[in-house]
């Protein structure tokens, strides 16, 4: 029998789960890929959907109390503010929502009312061009960092979208990348990149000088399989979405392993609404073991997560809210699990 430990001991505390799946517009998530926080307490969730369902792509708006406040979308296509496969989102200090689109190869900027501000990028490998933009981060001074998965590089832009510099190329040496995905900044402006297909996190100065590398391929503590996202808190602790291992790891500021999380989702407020009107499902759910022992051939993290609902499945983004609560965005489970590091 295959079993997995849900939580290893450590400072991470589970707070709650937000969201529920949907197949329509409105309340609920459809393959959420990222989230962000406005100064006035709103939570924005980027719903990626998929190529056959682009009409459902949107940014949904809610708050910590799980009230659904609305959504916005300019629709699918190449027009201003439209999208096709949006995968990364961040909200800058000046309250601008930056969204990357890996199909349109561009960055689009909205204000927090959902109005279009600007966009830049087209497919290519020159300066100012993008190929498969993924993670995006904006520094305090407005500088925009974009990880380009198919150009295997990080490109830096001004807040207006003017190209500033480019680092990296395909490879597995220091400062080289293999399909980078998520990207994060620490309080001093250093840049952390989830070097996805190299199974590691690389840390750079804000000018792109390689500082250090965390992790290597594997399933052990401090090892990664296709990390998708990284976040760094005010004390320098590093959170990594270990996507291929379907888990979250907490590292200290030197990159030493502290704790691994496998997920422990519970019913969100919206999920409870569903259960309250579908008693046949709720009653049978109550007698089910949601963390079952599985046959030996179902032995990969992916297969285990596919049948273990509380576990992370497809953790594609990690974001810290102003109170440094960690939001784990799960594309395959249409929800966000929220944790917080105990500070003692």
């Amino acid at each position: 029998m295959t079993t997995a430990t849900a939580v290893s001991a450590g400072p991470m505390e589970y707070l709650k789960t937000i969201g529920v799946t949907t197949n329509q517009s409105g309340r609920g998530f459809i393959n959420p890929y990222d989230c962000g926080f406005t100064n006035d307490g709103r939570i924005m969730v980027l719903n990626h959907a998929d190529a056959a369902r682009t009409a459902l792509i949107r940014i949904g708006v809610l708050n910590w109390d799980e009230e659904y406040l609305g959504e916005f979308s300019k629709g699918t296509g190449r027009g201003e503010g439209q999208w096709t496969l949006p995968i990364g989102m961040t909200i800058s200090n000046d309250q601008r929502i930056h969204v990357t689109d890996e199909h349109l190869h561009r960055v689009t900027v909205f204000d927090t009312d959902g109005d279009f501000v600007r966009m830049w990028g087209e497919k290519g490998d020159g300066a100012g061009q993008l190929n498969g933009p993924a993670g995006v981060a904006v520094a305090a001074d407005g500088t925009v960092y974009v990880a380009e998965q198919y150009n295997h590089r990080v490109q830096v832009f001004t807040s207006e979208g003017e190209p500033v510099s480019i680092w990296g190329e395909f490879g597995d040496g220091d400062g080289q990348f293999n399909m980078p995905w998520g990207l994060a900044l620490d309080t001093t402006g250093n840049v952390y990149v989830a070097d996805w297909r190299n199974d590691r996190i690389q840390k750079f100065t804000k000018d792109g000088q390689h500082l250090t590398t965390y992790g290597s391929s594997g399933t052990g503590d401090g090892e990664f399989s296709r990390p998708s996202a990284v976040a760094v808190d005010s004390e320098g602790y590093i959170y990594v979405a270990d996507w291929g291992n379907e888990r979250i790891q907490l590292l200290d500021s030197d990159g030493h392993f502290i704790q691994s999380l496998r997920g422990q989702a519970t019913l969100s407020k919206w999920a409870q609404d569903f259960m309250s009107v579908n008693p046949d499902e709720y009653n049978t759910r109550q007698i089910a073991n949601l963390v079952p022992d599985l046959p030996d051939h179902l032995d990969t993290p992916y297969l285990i997560s596919a049948q273990t609902e509380p576990y992370f499945w497809g953790p594609v983004s990690l974001r810290l809210d102003p109170e440094e609560r960690l939001f784990v965005v799960e594309a395959n489970r249409h929800r966000i699990q929220v944790y917080q590091r105990r500070k003692d």
């Binding site: 949907t22 329509q24 517009s25 409105g26 609920g28």
Partner: peptide, 12 residues
């Protein structure tokens, strides 16, 4: 369709 209105029913 889709009339599968689990959400946002009034609008959809």
């Amino acid at each position: 369709g889709s009339f599968d209105t689990h959400g946002d029913e009034i609008k959809v």
